[in-house]
């Protein structure tokens, strides 16, 4: 199963949507850089992730969350926060990585 990374804000680009469209059930999606805005709950785009929550494992890169002042914001339930070491572990445990840019 693949690891997908998404680094664009879903408010500005269709990157997360495209990723979800071709993401197999059982795969992992890690939100990094401006992609972390997609992890926030109570937004107009939160449903994109919520609809697939049971089938895809979602992760968000903590240092990018904190950098953007989102550390205390509510994240979508079920998204796991990882650090760069966790990012490395995710790349290791998936068969290959597709970076959505």
């Amino acid at each position: 199963m693949l690891l997908h990374t998404v680094n664009k804000s879903p408010f500005e680009r269709n990157t997360l949507e495209s990723c979800l469209r071709v993401c197999e059930d059982g795969a992992g999606i890690l939100l990094i850089e401006d992609g972390v805005y997609g992890a926030l709950d109570n937004t107009v785009v939160a449903d994109l992730i919520k609809k697939r929550m049971g089938n895809i494992k979602f992760y968000v890169l903590g240092p990018d969350v904190d950098a953007r002042g989102l550390g205390n914001q509510t994240m979508i339930d079920g998204i796991e926060t990882v650090d760069f070491g966790g990012f490395v572990d995710l790349v290791e445990k998936h068969s290959a990585t597709q970076s959505w840019l």
Partner: peptide
């Protein structure tokens, strides 16, 4: 930010 992310990832991988 790409190069920063790549650098931090590379460093973390080496540390592991």
């Amino acid at each position: 930010q790409a190069s920063d992310s790549a650098y931090l990832f590379t460093k973390a991988a080496l540390e592991k």
